[in-house]
């Protein structure tokens, strides 16, 4: 389903000199990185470092203050629609309507994205995420873990090429962690991932690149392949203020 006009040479995500201020507070002070198609970038950093802001800019939920950001070959500011089609986001909040059923939620998002094989796709995902038996229950009645699973279904419903994950393992029960990891492993090969996490073990296990963000700047960036102990030392070295790990 790749765009014909898009060669394999071009990185899937290109961020160049990204700055973002909220009022007088400068949250991002010149962030640059690239991620090739099929890459998996794990982003670490203390709270308030700007990790979530980067994800929200990539998802077009925030406009880049300055600098250029391209996702799937499109500029997020000039041409947000194709970016939105290409991106799926799993965030802290599940982005589900609690008064609608699991099916109604997925159906709503499927219609918004124009998913052609809507019913089959919803069946497939509910089955895959072990939620078929709760298909017609309102989300309000779901446990946190079940909501998060449904949120995963919502995020991948339109078969995005790029998945943005904001602490996806947070608040999941062990079963949901297994399902999530299984799903990620399954789609790992033909998707591009950016994951923000505090979970060094999980991050290193999945990632092809690691990045540490501190005070709105990229403090460290490297190909993955370090072990957790070595990386923790690197982390402490690059993040001066309190350890949020």
């Amino acid at each position: 389903m790749a765009d014909p006009d898009q060669g394999h040479s071009r990185p899937e995500i290109e961020v160049e000199g990204l700055r973002k201020t909220f009022g007088r507070r400068e949250v991002l002070r010149g962030v640059s990185f690239q991620l090739e198609r099929g890459g998996f970038l794990a982003v670490f950093g203390p709270n308030g470092a700007g990790k979530t802001t980067i994800l929200r800019v990539l998802a077009t939920l925030l406009s880049p203050g300055s600098g250029s950001v391209r996702v799937a070959g499109h500029d997020v500011r000039e041409d947000p629609m194709p970016v939105r089609r290409a991106v799926g986001l799993i965030s802290h909040s599940p982005l589900l309507y609690p008064d609608l059923t699991a099916y109604e939620n997925l159906r709503f998002y499927a219609d918004m994205y124009g998913v052609e094989d809507r019913e089959a796709r919803i069946d497939e995902l509910l089955d895959r995420l072990e939620l078929s038996h709760r298909r017609y229950d309102v989300v309000r009645a779901f446990s946190r873990g079940m909501r998060q699973r449904l949120a995963i279904a919502r995020a991948v419903l339109h078969r995005p090429k790029v998945l943005l994950l904001d602490e996806p393992h947070e608040g999941l029960d062990p079963r949901a962690v297994d399902i999530l990891d299984g799903l990620l492993a399954e789609i790992r090969a033909d998707h591009t991932f950016v994951m923000v996490t505090h979970h060094i073990g999980k991050g290193l296990e999945l990632a092809s690149r690691v990045m540490i963000v501190d005070a709105g700047r990229v403090a460290y960036e490297h190909a993955a392949g370090v072990d957790a102990a070595a990386f923790s030392a690197v982390y402490r070295e690059h993040v001066q203020e309190g350890s949020a790990l």
Binding site: P82, R84, S91, Y97, Y109, M112
Partner: peptide, 17 residues
């Protein structure tokens, strides 16, 4: 209120709409 309180607004704004 529902969009805002449940954080669904982000979900709506993520859509190519």
């Amino acid at each position: 209120a529902q969009e805002k309180d449940e954080g669904c607004l982000d979900g709506l704004l993520l859509c190519p709409v």
